[in-house]
Design a protein around this nucleic acid. Structure first.
Length: 444
RNA sequence: GGCCUUAUCGUCUAGCCUGGUCUAGGACGUCGCCUUCUCAAGGCGAAAACUCGGGUUCAAAUCCCGAUAAGGUCACCA
């Protein structure tokens, strides 16, 4: 029994695509669970479109995801082998040099065409079952611009052969291309690998995710920069077209390696919906250690926010985000302005619903009196709550708590007054309550 | 257009192979309620789907045929 060798073969013409993330993941999982080899091959035969930095980015992204390869191949470096196979099938009469009339600029007047045997190719796809396609309408397709410039289909077949690829796991868009690759395989005498064509990852409009149509949100880098966790992305993408058959939805990479079944992969395309990714990411945030959490909050918070402030705000922030990138949005929207500077508001806003200014003044006075008993500058939210709660219960929670919270935050919506006091500290809390008290007295 | 593929709640899906236990299960989202001074978080609950039409059968989401719809692919790109 030969061991399993899978590959992920992106072309370096852009960042790692989310569809590619899933293709890479499934190839990786299949290799790992079979104690096989996962190869990364950079398909750069089209010199005009490739840039070296894309290759670097691809490798780095895969590493960030934890999908590390055991074998790395740059397709263009295999040019001598491509040439050898090309020459061989030309010599054998299975391909020939053809005179052409260039239709576009840059096209050759001489290319290499494959002599199509015009037969019906039957593919036994692991996911789709038997698919048969008549290759006759392909004609004598072009496999190379010249003896030194093989095209995709030829290079793929030659490389898969030499690399000993046993399982070709790729997206469904390649299904229609498979017959011509099989024809080439037969011509060069390569064994046929097992094929598994994955359903497409779709955009909300059900079309294939494409940069042109859907922008940078098709790229992994977008989600990385938005502060999604790699484990969450892996988990989410694994569930696009596959499920463990149980009700478990949170699966680590190790869980996936253990439970993944290529045969259970869905046939229909799956829409990439960010809401679910957000939920999964929140689940993974809950799983973070306190140290990891603090580190990430710091990393994604605006630089001008001090560590002290950030630590106090951390749990408030965590409750409000799906991904760490939202932290800067929160600050930009002024969500925590009251922490950074004294709030400005109209005195009337301190009064809760039907309460009167007079009684609100009393409550504020009482709150100042109660909180003055705090022993230290640093306040625990619970301490503040213990001091204020009995009074609030007695006079009506809204009547008491609303003005306190408003005096501290100056906002209609904010964390509760105890948490606010904890964030602000004793001195600032008392000062703001005084300020509120005075503004109300002035408004009488 | 030719060829190929696919078709269960808005979305991801379970069930389909081995018809009955499916008044179709779960999750996200949505909505409601609870908690609550306001948010957020949390708890509880609800609405929400077998594309359509034939057939086979005592019985079909499940098997067969057809239609329809959606997607992919038809490069001197990968």
């Amino acid at each position: 029994m030969t061991s399993v060798v899978t590959r992920f073969a992106p072309s370096p013409t852009g960042f790692l695509h989310m569809g590619g993330v899933r293709t890479a993941l499934f190839s990786f999982l299949y290799a790992r669970q079979n104690k096989g080899t996962f190869a990364l091959r950079i398909e750069d035969t089209d010199a005009a479109r490739n840039k070296p930095e894309w290759t670097t980015g691809l490798v780095e992204d895969l590493k960030w995801l934890g999908l590390e390869h055991n074998v790395f191949v740059i397709q263009s470096e295999r040019a001598p082998k491509h040439k050898e196979y090309l020459q061989k099938i030309i010599d054998e009469g299975k391909a020939y040099i053809s005179k052409e009339t260039p239709k576009e600029e840059g096209q050759r007047d001489e290319v290499i065409r494959f002599k199509n045997p015009n037969k019906v190719v039957v593919i036994n796809d692991l996911i789709r079952g038997e698919v048969s396609i008549d290759t006759t309408d392909l004609g004598d397709f072009i496999i190379a611009r010249s003896i030194d410039e093989p095209l995709y289909h030829f290079a793929v077949v030659a490389d898969d052969f030499d690399m000993g690829i046993t399982h070709v796991i790729r997206a469904e868009e390649h299904l229609s291309n498979t017959p011509r690759q099989i024809l080439i395989q037969e011509a060069i005498g390569a064994p046929r690998p097992v094929y598994a064509h994955l359903p497409l990852v779709l955009a909300a409009d059900k079309s294939k995710l494409s940069k042109r149509k859907h922008g940078e949100t098709v790229w992994l880098t977008y989600y990385r920069s938005r502060g999604y966790l790699s484990a969450a992305i892996i988990n989410f993408v694994a569930l696009l077209g596959w499920n463990p058959g149980t009700e478990q939805e949170i699966l680590s990479l190790d869980d996936l390696i253990a439970q993944f079944k290529l045969e259970n992969v869905q046939k229909g395309g799956a829409v990439f919906n960010v809401e679910k990714l957000d939920w999964i990411n929140r689940e993974y945030i809950k799983l973070l250690t306190p140290e990891e959490r603090t580190k990430l909050v710091r990393e994604f918070a605006p630089a001008e926010i001090s560590d002290d402030v950030l630590i106090k705000l951390e749990s408030v922030i965590i409750d409000r985000i799906s991904a760490f990138g939202e932290i800067k949005d929160l600050f930009a929207a002024g969500e925590f302005d009251y922490v950074l500077s004294e709030p400005v508001y109209e005195a009337e806003k301190l009064v809760w619903k039907a309460a009167s200014k007079e009684e609100t003044i009393e409550h504020l006075k009482k709150a100042i009196e109660l909180l003055s008993n705090l022993p230290n500058e640093a306040i625990e939210a619970n301490e503040a709550k213990e001091l204020l709660w009995p009074y609030a219960e007695e006079k009506g929670r809204g009547n008491v708590l609303w003005p306190i919270r408003y005096a501290l935050s100056g906002k209609d919506k904010s964390p509760d007054p105890f948490v606010c006091a904890g964030i602000l500290g004793k001195a600032v809390t008392l000062k703001r309550l005084e300020t509120g008290l005075q503004s109300l007295q002035n408004a009488l």
